[in-house]
Simulated scan of single mutants.
Amino acid sequence: DSFGGTLSATAAADAIATGWRRAAPDDELRLLPLADGGTGFVEVLHAALGGEWHELTVTGPLGDRVQARWLRIGDTAYLESAAACGLHFVPREQRDPATACGVTSRGVGELIADACDAGVREVVIGLGGSATTDGGAGMLAALGAVAVDEDGAPLSGGGGALARCARIDGTPQLDGVQLVAAADVDNPLLGEHGAAAVFGPQKGADAVAVAELDDALARFADVLAAALGTDVRDEQGAGAAGGLGAALLALGARRVSGAGLVRQLVGLDAELDDAQLAVTGEGSFDWQSLRGKLITAVARASADRGVPCVVLAGQVSVGRREAASVGVDSAYSVAESAGGVEASMADPAGTLAALAEQVAARWSR
């Protein structure tokens, strides 16, 4: 998978291969960049399957205009929420409680609308890496279903405004297109495992903002249920991408594992059938990695075949026992190997390659 904002999945695979070859030049390496529903989802599919890019300007998470694109393969459109409302659009110095409550997912709806206008039959939305916690209200507004207050005035963008949501005016315009939510996590919308509590802090929300957002999302869940006829707050994946999952599920989207979908489309299983060792990784191998994200998919597929699986990650906070429970034999940290996070971030590709060289010396046959 990609390593946060430092290395794409392709760049990470190249770095690992570079280091591995230094220690084990006779090994046959097969590089297969992967993604779950988050950042890099569409790029990985394009690299494996080709397709036609559609580029447009959409509303970014802070309300400005950003360039985004979606991928057409046959009658299916693939897009990712991070392309329109990704956390990378919000500078670290701007990630504070006010920003966390105020960013919008409207651009995701604009991407979906563009795909529908192009005549596709299915739109697959990769969920993950978002800066938003607005429950998908911005996305719905772009599709013609606008959240309004008691006076009928449209709400300002962001999750905080949902505390004043009275109803949804209008009907989503999808022209019969089937939606698929490719979620990288299975979190519900609300509570201690919900969108605000789990993902809000990384977007700048403090404890007060988290509580405010959770209450606002609860109100919005009531409104969604009344407007669209289904209560999705407790469904798996409803909390993905700041609650975008909830809005998509309320629209009738079919939920799939983002990692599982990529696994199928790029042929991971066929590659593992011929492998003696699987090497995988991401920016942070932590407890969230165990909740349906990419490393879990790779490790379990490897374990099914009796293939050992090792993880190379920027940071590792998962214990040996927890890692083993999903099929990971060993996990190695770039930060630990490089002498700290700052050192590893100064040269992401070089330090990852150096770690791969060390790991290859232990694992190569």
Rank of each mutant, 00 (worst) to 15 (best):
A142W: 05
A166T: 13
A153I: 12
V146A: 01
G135L: 08
D149H: 01
C165Q: 11
G136R: 00
A145G: 05
L162Q: 13
A145F: 03
G170E: 01
D151K: 11
S156Y: 08
G152I: 05
A161V: 11
G160Q: 09
E150Y: 03
M139G: 08
P154Y: 09
G160F: 08
G159F: 10
A142T: 01
D149G: 03
S156R: 15
G158M: 03
G152P: 01
G159R: 03
A161S: 10
V148L: 09
I168E: 15
G136V: 02
S130N: 02
C165S: 09
R167F: 06
R164K: 15
G136W: 02
L162K: 12
C165E: 08
R164E: 14
G157I: 02
D151M: 08
G135E: 01
P154A: 07
A166M: 00
P154S: 04
L140M: 09
A166C: 04
S156V: 15
P154Q: 10
G129A: 02
S156T: 15
G157S: 07
G160S: 12
D134M: 08
R164D: 14
A142E: 08
M139Y: 11
M139W: 08
T133K: 01
L143M: 13
D149P: 03
L155S: 11
L143Q: 12
A145M: 09
D149W: 06
A161P: 00
E150D: 15
A142H: 07
I168Y: 09
L140P: 04
E150Q: 11
A166G: 00
D169Y: 02
L162N: 13
G157T: 02
A153Y: 06
D151S: 12
A161H: 05
T171N: 14
G158Y: 01
D149E: 07
G135I: 12
D134R: 07
L162G: 13
L140Y: 05
S156A: 15
V146S: 07
P154M: 07
A131P: 00
G136T: 04
L162Y: 11
P154W: 01
R167I: 14
G158H: 00
G128K: 09
G128F: 02
G135H: 03
A142S: 05
T133D: 13
E150G: 08
A147M: 05
D151A: 12
R164T: 11
M139D: 13
T171Y: 07
C165K: 09
S156G: 14
G138C: 09
A131H: 01
T133P: 06
G170D: 06
L155K: 05
G135D: 05
D134W: 05
G129D: 02
S156D: 14
G170R: 02
G129L: 01
L140D: 05
D134Y: 10
A141S: 12
V146D: 03
A147W: 06
L140V: 15
T133Y: 06
D134Q: 11
E150N: 10
A137D: 00
G160Y: 06
G159E: 11
I168D: 15
S156E: 13
L155C: 11
A161T: 13
A145E: 10
P154K: 12
A166V: 09
G136Y: 01
L162M: 12
G144E: 02
M139I: 14
A131L: 04
T132G: 06
S130E: 05
G135S: 05
A137K: 08
D151R: 14
S130C: 03
T133H: 08
E150K: 13
M139H: 11
M139V: 14
G160K: 10
T171Q: 15
D151Q: 13
